[in-house]
């Protein structure tokens, strides 16, 4: 017998374990792949240390410089909106906060549901905007690959199914919730093997960038 509840329990049980295992193995493999490559020793006399400028860039690069903001405001703003929206929905929605607490024992305050609901709606609109931009901007058209569209689809479906489940727009509810969990699991599974890795490697990349520039006396 395989009904909606069995589907939900499968996504919450074995499938979640599989997804998490692939995610953890893949991600750590990826990180090992990066770090073990190492860097060649640098004999040039530094102007400054690497750690502090590196760490500073990890944070500062989140905000575009004024010139870039002006030249690519749509790209920057929409990117910001959906990233922040996604993070809010991911970390500050009560069921998600409970999931993290259940898994890792770390808890933090969550936002009231209507707030997350609004944020999610905005995120969905922003995600559609990013797709339109990707399909129409000459640079993005030229550099986009199948992977970009695949990742967009998965991310969009994660948010969309979450939205549908919250509003109970799909019946029965275990199907709605199961679809959402399954999409999130697909996201976890593809994360280490696609550009989604940037969720983690961005901070490494930024650090290397900041360190290299900082060493030469420039805060990047």
């Amino acid at each position: 017998m395989s009904g909606s509840m069995e589907f939900l329990l499968w996504t919450k049980g074995p499938m979640f374990d599989i997804a998490l295992a692939i995610f953890a193995i893949g991600l750590f493999a990826r990180l090992a792949e990066i770090f073990l490559l190492g860097r060649k020793p640098n004999y040039a006399e530094p102007r400054a240390g690497e750690w502090l400028p590196g760490l500073r860039t990890v944070f500062t690069r989140t905000i575009a410089d004024p010139g870039t903001f002006q030249r690519a405001s749509f790209n920057v703003v929409v990117g910001w909106v959906w990233h922040i929206g996604f993070l809010i929905a991911l970390l500050l929605f009560v069921p998600h906060a409970e999931l993290i607490k259940g898994l890792f024992g770390i808890a933090w305050p969550a936002l009231p549901n209507p707030v997350v609901d609004l944020v999610t709606a905005i995120t969905l609109i922003a995600l559609v905007a990013t797709l339109v931009h990707r399909l129409t901007h000459p640079v993005k058209q030229r550099i986009s690959t199948i992977e970009d569209y695949l990742v967009w689809t998965v991310v969009f479906l994660v948010v969309l199914t979450g939205y549908l489940a919250y509003h109970r727009l799909v019946n029965p509810y275990p199907v709605a919730l199961g679809m959402h969990i399954l999409m999130a699991e697909i996201l976890l599974i593809i994360l280490p093997f696609t550009k989604l890795t940037h969720i983690f490697t961005t901070f490494i990349a930024r650090w290397y960038n900041g360190a290299a520039f900082g060493r030469k006396g420039v805060q990047s």
């Binding site: 374990d17 193995i25 069921p95 898994l103």
Partner: peptide, 16 residues
């Protein structure tokens, strides 16, 4: 809560 996975534990994640 309903959103908490059934079997996964942080230990298992660490092991993976």
């Amino acid at each position: 809560p309903l959103s908490v996975p059934i079997t996964a534990t942080s230990g298992a994640i660490l092991a993976a």
